[in-house]
């Protein structure tokens, strides 16, 4: 029970087995143990949303989750959404709408939008803004992010798959 724990976590479809201290945050596990630095660490107390990842398909703050809790879990990060040479659908929408400037919040935004699109109708701009309210962006003023999400909602309705 005390000391380090051996865990196996599947990240973006690939299983990783590591020995971790109980206090290691999932965010630091991803960045420092696995080298997946696309997940950003901002406030470290669940407010800014930069470190948001998917755990078993649901968005979660990786700064409020211990790596040891994720033994056996499937974690999804920004690295799983696409690559520079092959952007995912959400990344493409953000690019088209210039929905990022410095990019610090973008990984968390994209993961949040993934979960919002899966769970909510997002029928109005107000609903989209409320959905995004747990992710802070200090560059864009949110306008272009909202437009990107509006496009994604329209595309989802045209092609529900």
């Amino acid at each position: 029970m005390s000391g380090r724990h051996t865990i196996t976590v599947t990240v973006n479809g690939r299983a990783y087995t590591r020995e971790v201290a109980p206090r290691l945050l999932l965010a630091d596990f991803l960045r420092e143990e696995l080298g997946l630095t696309g997940t950003h660490v901002g406030c470290e107390h669940g407010i800014c949303g930069a470190c948001t990842v998917l755990i078993d398909g649901d968005s979660a703050r990786s700064c409020l989750t211990l790596a040891v809790q994720c033994d056996g879990a499937e974690v999804g990060t920004i690295e799983g959404l696409g690559r520079v040479a092959d952007l995912g659908r959400l990344q493409q929408a953000f690019r088209e709408h210039h929905a990022l400037q410095c990019g610090f919040c973008t990984a968390g935004m994209l993961i949040t939008v993934t979960d919002l699109l899966a769970k909510y109708p997002l029928a109005s701009e107000a609903d989209i803004r409320e959905g995004l309210s747990g992710n802070l962006c200090r560059c864009t003023g949110y306008e272009n992010i909202v437009r990107a999400v509006q496009d994604l909602v329209a595309a989802r309705e045209a092609d529900p798959a």
């Binding site: 755990i55 968005s59 703050r61």
Partner: peptide, 9 residues
């Protein structure tokens, strides 16, 4: 109550 990522957990 909070935000989706918080409500999920």
């Amino acid at each position: 109550v909070a935000h989706l990522a918080i409500r999920n957990r």
